[in-house]
Design a protein around this nucleic acid. Structure first.
Lengths: 212, 212
DNA sequence: TAGATTGTTAATCGATTAACAATC
DNA sequence: TAGATTGTTAATCGATTAACAATC
């Protein structure tokens, strides 16, 4: 079974590789070299090659690696076998913008349901999705077996909605509010705001005159 | 000069520490232990202590570290001495949502100007900011010496606007569109979309039944 | 064949961890 | 004093890098 257990670092890098490869495939490319991947991901090319070899993926010397093969392998490792269904909570400005993110579809994620608590928009359609009453959230999650939610509600309802999501069985929350939220340890919260990236780039901005 | 050069890893960790500490201070806390920091950032507590010692920051045994002292130290290292001014490009759904991100203010970032190319909204106010004509962007950046931009335009104008930002002297672009954009190597692009985080969590979702 | 990139080795560096004496 | 956490050591692990023979 050890063969099927990957370290955090490897999974992290595979996510980065996969992201780049799907974009490349989209551009019509068929093969990719370890140095192409290295340039895009800032991961050393020797490490890329070692990762691939460790995963049992072979390339062609002088040519590179087959993009379709890599994508299939990576998806299999991540357990990304079919499209993954998501719910989106919050149909305000942020929610509407997220509904327009075509990248979700491209990477095999489908926003299946949209919820809000605002009676003025419940029942209306946004980007062809009907906005549902947040009071029906728990029932729908139970029926549909969805485990991943995108949180795009207002700051002051962020924690309440999080509690509801946890109670309903959601296991991954992509937090698009810019407030910290809390959940039990078995729920994975990924906060998506620009602060850490902004802080991080400041150092390079002020110390070199360049951003990196 | 070696004393003032920090590795990429250290800067990354300092950004994480700082983010947590500002939130803690906001809650009224005065001191923090290395294990508090460790729990929140998932960085080993011994490594936290070693980082702080290396930076010349001393704690009190049995008590912990002074939060204000840490924040000051970290800000100084990152070169975050005064509020940092930003521009926001794009005043659609996404831009409006970002204007409401109070976390920017809390961490010392001010959205100074908002630009759009839509004549219907140019001149109008959103969250007390007047929307300016994107044609005036280059002049205003030149005068104001702003070096950081948040990109929240539509997918099909993302690259054009990026080119304009680069030409105007912007050095850091926080890319909130979900399309990849290209810029010369001296410009730092930070793409902020949920794909890598989603891919990453899939592995834990399917391999353990839990997200981590 | 010539050019390019893989597959692999070996050396180094930084991150991670456990443990515990020092001391607030 | 008793309890807690720092400051520090030492051992280990994974990441990083350079280099180059193998081979497509």
């Amino acid at each position: 079974m050890k063969n099927f257990v990957f370290s955090e670092g490897v999974i992290q890098r595979i996510s980065q590789y996969l992201r780049f490869l799907v974009e490349l495939k989209d551009l019509g490319k068929r093969t990719v070299t370890s140095s192409d991947i290295s340039e895009n991901t800032r991961i050393n090319s020797a490490e890329v090659r070692r990762d691939l070899i460790n995963l049992g993926i072979k390339g062609k010397r002088g040519v590179g690696f087959n993009i379709d093969g890599l994508i299939n392998n990576f998806n299999q490792i991540l357990g990304h076998d079919a499209n993954v269904k998501l719910i989106l909570v919050g149909a305000g400005n942020l929610g509407k913008a997220i509904l327009n993110y075509q990248i979700l579809k491209k990477f095999g994620f489908d926003i299946e349901y949209v919820f809000d608590n605002n009676e003025k928009i419940i029942g209306k359609k946004i980007s062809e999705k009907e906005v549902m009453d947040i009071n029906s959230l728990q029932d729908i999650i139970n029926e549909s077996n969805i485990r991943v939610a995108i949180l795009a509600v207002s700051q002051n309802s962020a924690q309440n909605v999080t509690d509801l999501l946890v109670k309903s069985g959601i296991k991954v929350i992509i937090n698009y509010t810019s407030v910290p939220i809390e959940a039990p340890p078995h729920v994975n919260i990924q906060t998506n705001d620009p602060i850490e990236k902004l802080l991080h780039t400041l150092y390079y901005l002020s110390n070199t005159g360049q951003a990196f």
